[in-house]
Simulated assay, not measured.
Amino acid sequence: MDDWLKDSDEVEASWVTVDLAIFTLRGDHLMVLLVDRGVEPFLGRPALPGGYVQKSETLREGALRELREEAGIDGGALHLEQLGAYGDPGRDPRGRVVTVAYLALGPDLPVPVGGTDAENAYWATVEELGRDGTRLAFDHSEILAEALEEVRRKLEYTPVATAFCASEFTLSELRTVYEVVWGQSLDPSNFRRKVLGTTGFVEATGGQRMPSTGRPAALYRRGSAWVLSPPLLRAGGQPA
């Protein structure tokens, strides 16, 4: 270690945590998974699920364990990716704690069950959180806001919207994902033309779903593309 580091009064131990911004669709609502903290700091305050990474774990393993322990959800089948690292001094009153935030998406995920240091786990409507101004523990409100915008952006340039759908879905169900996440109404015919005109976005399964009324709807699955070209842009190119 450099001598200047040995003598510095500012050197302190740091800890690493993981936090998860997990989204699903229920009906026509975009939901995020929250827990009520069962311990200090921020006892009783809503927060994103997460916790300390153990010495023997990778970051991803820690994220999946925390999801299982705090909410009783198996994250193995989720779309899971790193969102970013957050390490502002003072973000955690216990000391210098750097967290690596993960973004996770899944179709109609189950009712969570609180555990370990989570007093309660539940799905909250993103729209209501924004409207009532609820402040989450630590810097989780900022993490959630950035995660939400990342999801909205990824819907424009990648086929990640299919992560909100079952393995087979109709174009109407896929359109609902875009409308709910973006908060914008989309013209069905125009949406269908754009999706089917984007190479590798979806592929037909050959199956059909019979609605309660009307004609049967064709079923699709995610295609082979990782990037949408051309992209499907939000109205005005601005966040909903």
Rank of each mutant, 00 (worst) to 15 (best):
W4M: 15
E12P: 04
W15L: 09
V16W: 01
T17N: 13
L20P: 04
A21W: 00
F23E: 01
T24G: 12
T24V: 11
D28E: 10
H29I: 04
L33G: 04
R37F: 12
E40G: 10
F42G: 05
G44Q: 07
P49H: 11
G50K: 00
K55S: 15
L59D: 06
G62I: 01
G62M: 01
G62Y: 09
G62R: 11
R65I: 05
E66Y: 06
A71M: 09
G75Y: 11
Q82P: 15
G84R: 03
Y86S: 09
Y86E: 08
Y86W: 14
G87R: 08
G87W: 10
A101C: 09
L103K: 03
A104H: 01
L105W: 07
P107E: 06
L109I: 13
G115M: 13
T116N: 10
T116F: 11
D117Q: 15
E119T: 14
A121S: 11
Y122S: 14
V126K: 06
E127V: 03
E128S: 06
G130L: 01
R131G: 06
D132Y: 14
D132R: 14
G133D: 09
T134N: 08
A137D: 03
E142S: 09
E142A: 10
I143W: 00
I143L: 10
I143Y: 03
E146D: 12
L148I: 02
T162P: 08
T162M: 06
C165Y: 04
A166R: 13
T170V: 04
L171I: 09
E173V: 04
E173I: 00
Y178D: 01
G183R: 11
Q184W: 15
S185K: 15
F191W: 04
R192T: 12
V195K: 02
T199G: 14
T199F: 05
G207I: 02
R209I: 11
P216D: 10
L219I: 13
Y220K: 08
S224K: 08
A225P: 10
A225H: 07
P231R: 01
L232V: 08
L232T: 09
R234D: 11
A235F: 07
G236F: 03
Q238C: 00
A240T: 09
